[in-house]
Structure formats: structure tokens, C-alpha cells
Design a protein around this nucleic acid. Structure first.
Lengths: 181, 181
DNA sequence: TATTGTTATACTCTATAACTATA
DNA sequence: TATAGTTATAGAGTATAACAATA
């Protein structure tokens, strides 16, 4: 399996960088530090933390994030990048500002996401004919193919992390999460 | 209300820095960017995202994080800092390595958290009499007072974000979250 | 004037790897 | 050799503020 990585740096080369993205990542696998287990340590007193929705949620998210990243490593897709690609595909001629709003992040953050997706060759900025300030975002052909493949993998990932939940519980959990805030 | 901030930089002064922590923060409040609304944009198509536990969870976490940070701003307490303080108080003579394990992060990350809490005057490293490599972590008197006050505020925060949930749902949600992974 | 995209800057959270002092 | 703490370095994710081009 190939593996992509994104270093942001200051854009050094270009073709150079895109090439480097496709090199297998130095995962280390060496002699050092044990990788972190994200479960609660049974010999510790967590006090009030276990009663807080926010804390339970954060622990769950750490576990989920790890599984997501491992599953997506070959494509260098992170959760925000995946969201962005879905939104760009599903909402034609989306502008960068709209993407930011849809994702709930600042415009400058959207620039970052689009830059990385653009370097990976998944997303393209097209000049809008009507407003010369604005771009219309769209998936490249590669981006479309990758998104299709990756969506399957994301669904598998979701099933994996929800493996101990019944279908009812899965629905219930999403319902409760959406009631938060 | 006073507001603390932590700049990590390269430790410039010391007393200087501690003083600066207590200065009210330049919140801006100026003419610029609208602050982000973390709700789903109703005019966008989110496709598969709404069916994924991971995505619902991430959106919920963004909302929760924002409320947490606003509530904790006067003390410069972030979620990991709060967890660390609870763990340090509840597990006497905790070592840094144990803290890292309890929090599910790398040791270097625990150093960061302890450094910031130490700069804020909330946590102290005490030399262990038995093992001269190790420290015993403990709350300062200020840290203890702050933690007591802040725990009340965190409980209020948790109640606020769970306001649309019944008690049963609150329990259920935590149960389901703990089944994930 | 307001908006679009962008850049500069900064801060948090996290990781890996290598170092030091001790055990 | 192994462990405790630390530092150096890196990268993702996010934010605010200011800017140029365009509306």
C-alpha cells in the first residue's frame, strides 16, 4: 500500500512535493516509545471526568480518529479533508467561503484544506465566470474516483467503531449527539 | 473578569511571562470576520456525513469545545489541562509518565500540559525521595482552589450542552460513547 | 463599503526520536 | 539496559487580523 503525507512547509518545489506525497511514510517501527493505548487506565481515579459527556466524547473521538487515520493513510485523507470532498461533490460550484461555512470553520482554514486537497490532486479551483473574485470548487477525476473508494472504507470504519452497538443504538447515538450543543 | 493566555514561545522571561498570563486578552471584538456558527448549514447537502457516528461526534465536539473554552477563559483551562488537574488531585504522587498513560497521550505531551499548568501556578513538580529521576505531581494551593471553583463551572457547562437531554438520555449517551472504539 | 480569497502569525494538541540523569 | 523526564522537531487543526482584487 502506498502512503501519502502532507508537509505544509512553504511550498518548496511543486512537482517535487507532489512526488514526495506518494512516497511511503517513515512509520518508524523502531525501538522507541510504546504507542499510546486510548483506553481508561483501570488503576487511576478519574473522578468527575467519567460523569462528563464532554470527556466521554473526547475519549471516544481519540479512538475514532486513530482508526480513521489508519484506514485513510494510503490516500492522506483526514476527517476534515473527507468532509470537504463530500461537500464539494454534493454541492456543485461551491465557493470557498461556503465550504468554510458548511464545515463550521474559518475561511483561512478552508484555504488550508483546499490547498492540501489540491496538492493531492483531488480538488481543483475553477474561475467563476460571473464573479472574478470567486472560485468554483470541484473534484478532479482522480478526486472523484478516490472519494468513491474512500467512502466505502469510511463506512467500514464507521461500522468497525460501532461494532458493539446494535442498529438501534447506532441511530440513538447519532440522535443524542445531534441534540448536544 | 480577568483572562489568562499561554504563549509557549521560548520561555523569554519568567516572572514576566506569569504577569502577562494575567493580563486581559485582546479579544479583538473588532471589525473583522464573523465568528463561526457550528451548526449544520441547512442549505447544504452533507450526503453520507450525517450517517456517520464519527462526523456527528466531531460536530458535537466542536460545539462542546467552544462552550468549554468560553467558560474556562478566565483561568486559561483547556480540556486536557482540566483532565490533568483532576487526575493529579485524585491520584497522589502521580508521576509524569503515569499522567501520560492516564490521559492516553505521549510523555512529551504530558510535559507540555504540566509545563503550562506550572506556569499558571496550578501544579508543582516535587522531587520524589525514593527515585531521583521521578517527580511527584501535585496541585498548588492556588491550583486546588481553582480546581474546586472550575469543577463547578465545568458541571454547569456539561449541564448546558446537555440541556436538551433528559437524565436518562444523559446516562444513555455516556454509555453508548463508552461502547465505541 | 462589503465580499472573496489569501497570507501572516499564533496557539493547542499531538507524535517520534533522541538526549540526560538515574536506576 | 531500562526508565523518568526532557527537548527538538514536526504536522494538523484552528483562530484572528490584515491585505489585494473585485463587486
Amino acid at each position: 500500500m502506498e502512503t501519502k503525507t502532507l508537509k505544509s512547509k512553504k511550498d518548496e518545489g511543486f512537482a517535487d512535493e507532489v512526488e514526495r506525497l506518494k512516497e511511503p511514510q517513515q512509520t518508524g517501527e523502531s525501538h522507541n516509545e510504546a504507542t499510546i493505548a486510548p483506553d481508561l487506565a483501570s488503576d487511576m481515579d478519574y473522578g468527575v471526568l467519567t460523569e462528563l459527556v464532554g470527556y466521554c466524547l473526547r475519549r471516544a473521538q481519540i479512538r475514532i480518529y486513530q482508526d480513521f487515520q489508519e484506514a485513510m493513510e494510503p490516500w492522506a485523507i483526514t476527517p476534515p479533508r473527507f468532509s470537504a470532498m463530500i461537500l464539494i461533490r454534493n454541492n456543485t460550484r461551491m465557493k470557498l467561503t461556503e465550504l468554510a461555512r458548511a464545515m463550521g470553520i474559518a475561511r483561512s482554514g478552508a484555504v488550508e484544506v483546499v490547498n492540501s486537497l489540491s496538492k493531492l490532486g483531488y480538488v481543483r479551483r475553477c474561475h467563476s465566470p460571473t464573479d472574478r473574485r470567486a472560485y468554483a470548487l470541484e473534484l478532479t477525476e482522480t478526486g472523484g474516483d478516490v472519494l468513491q473508494k474512500v467512502t466505502v472504507v469510511v463506512r467500514e470504519h464507521d461500522a468497525r467503531i460501532s461494532a458493539r452497538l446494535s442498529d438501534d443504538e447506532h441511530v440513538q447515538l447519532r440522535k443524542l449527539l445531534n441534540k448536544l450543543g
